[in-house]
């Protein structure tokens, strides 16, 4: 199921890094299933400033390591990511603890250059390396009746200084509807710029759902549960009026704290201009069908 989607964003949209130019996913896409993803004209992407490795890895929300943006980069090195296993349970044919290495040996890792839009109205473009979540779920075998997928981040007070404070109810929890989880855009990221994903970005594996606000893309996952009911999610538990279960990027539905109509790309410096936020973070063509007939203002 790999290569079901190819980038519209290219390396022209991220920091040019010579070492990675030869592994552009555009090429991977050409070698794979086809050219379907190359439909958008190149000029649609002009004006996007690149995001550097430094930007991606020093400006993070990962409250288990502190609430300041630079806390994760400072403190996440204490997280032990080897060995690592993911418990997959619930409505699956083959429940169990899956060792990270065993998962990786089965998965096809590819590069996905995605927009990343935080609910706080900042954004980046990030060249992830990862595999489709659908492949992992199929590995465990989703049973008839599975409707949702719940995720949990590691909770390790000895390695995570931030969990000493009740910022949120730990462990961090997230969830997706099964069709969202199986969507070709939904990936488990294990790398950035071809490097192993740094701890502050959610090592060793994290979810990336590019059409939803960043907090849905849960980090350092230790448990995946297929359920038949909508699972509780951390920010929704903390503020149901502010953070819905869906949390799709939507410029027309304001968050009580932030207008979501525009965003600021990280990297523009002190005088960076705001840019309009795109419906579904620019992935409307791919994912709008998932929400047909739904009132997105109600199901925010």
């Amino acid at each position: 199921m790999a290569h079901r989607w190819t980038n519209k964003l290219t390396h022209a949209d991220v920091t040019p890094k010579a070492a990675f130019l030869n592994r552009r996913q555009v090429m991977a896409g050409l070698a794979g299933v086809g050219l379907a993803g190359l439909a958008r004209p190149a000029d649609a992407q002009e004006g996007l400033e690149p995001n550097s490795w430094e930007e991606i890895t020093t400006y993070n929300n990962y409250y288990e390591f502190g609430t300041r943006k630079d806390d994760p980069a400072k403190y996440a090195h204490t997280l032990v990511t080897e060995p690592w296993s993911v418990k997959i349970d619930g409505l699956v044919d083959r429940p169990g603890d899956y060792a990270f290495q065993d998962i990786m040996s089965e998965m096809t890792v590819e590069e996905r250059i995605y927009r990343f839009r935080c609910v706080e109205a900042w954004s980046m473009v990030i060249p992830w390396d990862g595999f489709e979540l659908a492949d992992l779920l199929n590995m465990a075998g989703v049973q008839e009746g599975g409707k949702y997928v719940a995720f949990e981040t590691a909770y390790r007070p000895d390695q995570m200084p931030g969990v000493a404070f009740p910022v949120l109810e730990w462990p961090y929890r997230e969830g997706l509807r099964l069709d969202e989880a199986m969507h070709p855009l939904t990936i488990m990221a294990t790398g950035i710029y071809g490097e192993t994903i740094p701890n502050q970005n959610g090592a060793p594996l994290r979810l990336v759902v590019p059409w939803k606000y960043g907090f849905k893309s849960i980090k350092s996952i230790v448990r995946i549960t297929v359920t038949d009911t909508q699972p509780p999610t951390s920010w929704n538990m903390a503020g149901p009026r502010e953070y819905g279960f869906y949390s799709n990027v939507n410029p027309n539905v304001d968050h009580p704290r932030w207008s979501q109509g525009s965003e600021r790309r990280i990297g523009g410096g002190l005088f960076a201009k705001r840019e309009p936020t795109l419906m579904f973070n620019g992935y409307e063509e791919e994912v709008a069908g998932l929400y047909e007939g739904m009132d997105l203002a109600k199901n925010y």
């Binding site: 020093t58 400006y59 943006k69």
Partner: peptide, 12 residues
Amino acid sequence: GVTGGLGVEPIK
């Protein structure tokens, strides 16, 4: 803020 000493998002 101008010279990058306040991190990658100097406005906030």
